[in-house]
Write a protein that binds this DNA or RNA. Structure first.
Lengths: 123, 123, 123, 123
DNA sequence: GTGGTCTAGACCACC
DNA sequence: GTGGTCTAGACCACG
């Protein structure tokens, strides 16, 4: 449960949770078959409502990241080889698409954009 | 009023308007002193509520892009040389920050990120 | 709001609602652009919790049947021609698949199955 | 014990077991008087909890497919001639009823339904 | 013990 | 007014 919640963010809490867990799965930190903590436990640990955790788990199940089995728990789903990697790029692409377009509408050249991103990547 | 509104987007309408106008100012399409149309006119042309346009104008004024003069209208603010350019980068930086971090959490290397951005910049 | 809820059914209420509305859309009874009643109104009319209606609306939005616009309402989405018809068959196929297999495991011949279905179609 | 269990299915495990055994009885694969394995043995073989097998056996007994004799075991019940066959159709009818109605609500004609079933029966 | 559903009631941003 | 999120607390079926 390596999750950081920011109440300041405009991203809803349940989505923050889902995104961070899906990122962990995509990175390979959570292997297939791994059992997520029960929603009640996770809720207590993250200091949020059970329902908020449940919404996050639901989103993960809907996107195919986990399988939820009543009475047993929620488990990281297994994917065919290479699938995770392509999803990783797809997710990144989705997220970046609008921003790149926005930067272009700002008149940034390709060169300027590349430099900006390099600077930000360092943190 | 070269503005495209998408009701499907999750970005609120007033913010879509404000962003597109600020981008036009930053690009230099709207010069300092340019008079924005009155909110009622803009609302009619964009087919949105007056209150929506008002919020957009307010956001632009808050960010210092326009000055509102009671009884006369809203005018594009003038900036000292180089200021617009630095704002352009600041806006882009703000927008990209979270997403670059997300891409890093996905495990993308600097190289992979650069390639992805290049690909997206082409459209 | 031509919806019948059966508390006896093992199908959850929110899913009964979603299925009946999606069926109405697929049949063409609810045209593209049609505005669904607000969740509070629908909840009152159907005598269920607001949340139950919301879950139904969410499911419909997730499946692309409706678009939900904050502050305005939920509207039947438009589809390209022929799309609704193919979805109609896809939905039916999904639903029947398991049952046909079950009937086969029961040893029903194709002929017996056809007769049974004919009988049931009449009600 | 020719039984396949899918934890992914939304059908509870005990019901999957009961359905597959009842199908075997209805098909005549398990003759009257046949002795089912003791629940502990079955549980071990199927890799499920004892309580799950117990529930499956109970369901079968409730439906009249088996008789449970304390201290001796569970035996496939005997039926008067023709009874099994009528039960076979009754089971199929039960299962198909809701789905045929759903297909009708989708606006499928009798003809379309028949073609769809034919297609699915082939697998 | 687990997840799934349903409930009531609150606050928020947007239009 | 609208939908979106978060809250607390209940009951159920399943294993």
């Amino acid at each position: 449960m390596d999750i950081i919640i920011s109440t300041a963010s405009d991203e809803p809490i349940y989505r923050q949770i889902a995104q961070q867990i899906s990122a962990q799965i995509l990175r390979g930190d959570l292997p297939a078959g791994f059992c997520l903590p029960p929603i009640r436990t996770a809720a207590k640990e993250l200091r949020v409502s059970i329902i908020t955790v449940k919404k996050a788990w639901e989103e993960l199940a809907r996107e195919g990241f986990i399988d939820s089995i009543v009475g047993k728990g929620c488990f990281v789903a297994s994917h065919r080889p290479g699938r995770l990697d392509s999803m990783r790029f797809q997710k990144a692409r989705q997220r970046l698409l609008n921003d790149i377009e926005y930067c272009r509408s700002l008149g940034l050249t390709r060169q300027e954009l590349a430099e900006l991103i390099d600077e930000l990547y360092e943190d």
